[in-house]
Amino acid sequence: MAVDTNMPVLVVDDYKTMCRIMRNLLKQLGFDNVDEAADGAEALEKMQSGKNFGLVISDWNMEPMTGFELLKQVRADEKLKGTPFIMITAESKTENVIAAKRAGVNNYIVKPFNATTLKAKMASVLGDF
């Protein structure tokens, strides 16, 4: 089934510039319906408010709620647990990657990354687009 590029995508990062970069990259990939959150708590609130996000792309290092905690909360929520989730971090220690994988992350991108990497990871999670 073809990927619906109009689906809402939630970008979670405490750096506004990073959110803007992600928004532009996603736009280039055809995804115009992008929402932003500055930390896990704000993201969870947006997800629980009823908007059906087709993908979450989240940073790990955020306060007060980290991306890892957001991932665990999403996977523990009956309504949200199926939401595709990609983690993007500047640090990539193996134990963190494994912890995220065990918590149910669908893919993991190391910063800095480019549009090609982002597209490839999104395709591996959502299917080709």
Partner: peptide, 22 residues
């Protein structure tokens, strides 16, 4: 709860190794 941020000599685990894991 937080990671240490970017490593001085590049990522501890490269994107290729992570891809292989996934």
């Amino acid at each position: 709860n937080l990671l240490n941020g970017p490593q001085i000599h590049g990522p501890a685990t490269g994107q290729d190794a992570i891809d292989a894991l996934f």
